[in-house]
């Protein structure tokens, strides 16, 4: 079908530097990167703590977190929507239909991935480092900084997975952001909108741009972590 015109649309979007298009791409990146950053700040230490501590209910939390990795974006969106709606418990913040709401929803989506992958990575590292760190008096949360630092290249993969999930999802941001033009319209919600308007070449064009960006970011991160990993041995 319109694959050629889709490529045409994608290329003209990129090379004409259409300001509206740049704004959409900028917002998408800002929202997703902020969400991944937040989820990393929360998820890395929590995942590492889960790996190095033992407490009643730990396995319940692990199962829960693993399950939440598959949380459907619309459900995450709905939860955040209900929390942030004016009639919801956090309605007075006035965050619904703002980029902040989208960041929260995506953080919620990415967090379980980062916690679960961090726990796995750090658990392996902990079994290797455990006696040495214990000998140095670094147990429990005191072991976390060492483990996170030494696992940084493996952990980058988890962050990338989180980034992939957040940048690709449409359900949650559509619900909590409202797809408001020039304010909460991201690449994915634009794609949904253009599809519904029947402008399939433009939708596919945006899709190509999204794929290209995602691949580029992954490639950069992969390259950086390979170089780093080679040094760290």
């Amino acid at each position: 079908m319109d694959v050629t015109s889709a490529f045409g649309a994608a290329l003209s979007l990129i090379f004409n530097l259409d300001p509206q298009f740049l704004q959409i791409v900028g917002l998408s990146l800002r929202v997703t990167l902020t969400a991944v950053l937040l989820a990393a700040l929360i998820g890395l230490p929590l995942g590492a703590l889960l790996a190095v501590t033992r407490f009643p209910g730990r396995s319940v939390i692990i199962v829960l977190v693993n399950g939440l990795m598959g949380l459907p974006p619309v459900v995450a969106g709905l939860i955040v929507f209900l929390l942030l709606s004016r009639s919801g418990p956090l309605g007075s913040l006035g965050w619904l239909f703002t980029p902040t709401a989208m960041v929260i929803a995506q953080t919620l989506l990415v967090l379980p991935i980062i916690i679960a992958l961090t726990r796995g990575t750090i658990e392996d590292l902990w079994s290797e480092y455990r006696e040495h760190l214990t000998s140095l008096g670094l147990t429990g949360w005191r072991a976390v900084p060492t483990l996170l630092w030494d696992g940084r290249f493996a952990l980058a993969t988890g962050l990338l997975a989180g980034f992939g999930r957040a940048s690709a999802e449409v359900g949650a941001v559509l619900i909590v952001g409202g797809n408001i033009a020039a304010y909460t319209r991201t690449m994915t919600t634009s794609i949904a909108l253009e599809t519904s308007k029947g402008d399939l070449p433009l939708a596919l064009g945006l899709g190509l741009v999204l794929i290209t960006l995602t691949v580029a970011i992954n490639a950069a991160a992969y390259g950086a972590s390979r170089i780093g990993a080679r040094f760290a041995g």
């Binding site: 929360i42 902040t100 960041v103 020039a182």
Partner: peptide, 20 residues
Amino acid sequence: LVLGGAALAQATLTAPPPAP
């Protein structure tokens, strides 16, 4: 942490980009 982080994000994100 999610809510605190969101508050921070709010600070950086509320000013919408100058729409073209």
